[in-house]
């Protein structure tokens, strides 16, 4: 795949929305940093991480995918070019929690880096699933869903009997925490791989190649 195709695909990404989302997340992390020794820093950071995932949900938006799919630059190729953009919200989230981290402090902010990765993966996974259902630019809805999923998971800890999803203090179940986030990442990768297949593939038959 040539670099000119890559450049074109990257240029077509919804950059204003992506950058706006990153700036909003960074602003939240900024407030969290200003209040880093108070009780509000943690929930604000979780909101920021959720916003990173919501921003990533816009990465796959392609309003004119119907005609783009009919070109030799297939859907998977375009997605492959677009995916690195998701590193941007991830970088914002990861850098922010690493900056909040105080090596001498009790709180291990660096433990939230996997949350940033999973949040971004979640945004991509939800967007991809919605694209498969026929929404060509699902960013708006996908971002709300991804944000809700991530924020509810880390703020309310529904599985706290088995695993701590946002282990700011030393995690009670370090292995379970690592496994849980690895599972989220793998699931989202699987959803992405399954949903971003070429829509022109035969519906009930295997590819002949």
């Amino acid at each position: 795949m040539s670099a000119s195709v890559g450049r074109a695909v990257l240029r077509a990404a919804p950059w204003p929305t992506l950058l706006g989302g990153c700036v909003a997340a960074a602003a939240l992390f900024g407030i969290a940093a200003a209040l880093r020794h108070g009780a509000l820093a943690f929930p604000l950071s979780l909101l920021g991480l959720g916003l990173c995932g919501a921003t990533a949900a816009y990465v796959l938006d392609e309003a004119s995918a119907e005609v783009e799919d009919a070109t030799p630059t297939g859907r998977r190729a375009r997605v492959a070019w677009r995916l690195p953009i998701a590193l941007l919200p991830f970088a914002v989230g990861a850098a922010a929690v690493l900056m909040l981290d105080d090596p001498g402090g009790a709180a291990g902010w660096d433990r939230l880096v996997p949350v940033a990765a999973a949040s971004v993966a979640c945004g991509l996974g939800v967007a991809s699933a919605l694209r498969r259902s026929g929404r060509l630019a699902p960013g708006d809805l996908a971002s709300a869903i991804a944000f809700g999923l991530v924020f509810l998971a880390v703020a309310f800890e529904p599985l706290d009997a088995w695993v701590s999803l946002a282990p700011l203090e030393s995690p009670s179940y370090p292995l379970a925490t690592a496994l849980a986030w690895a599972l989220v990442l793998l699931s989202c990768a699987a959803v992405l791989a399954a949903c971003e297949r070429d829509p022109g593939r035969p519906a009930n038959r295997k590819e002949t190649v």
Binding site: S2, R7, A8, T73
Partner: peptide, 8 residues
């Protein structure tokens, strides 16, 4: 132009 690039 974008579509032209996608059309190689």
């Amino acid at each position: 132009d974008y579509m032209a690039v996608l059309k190689e």
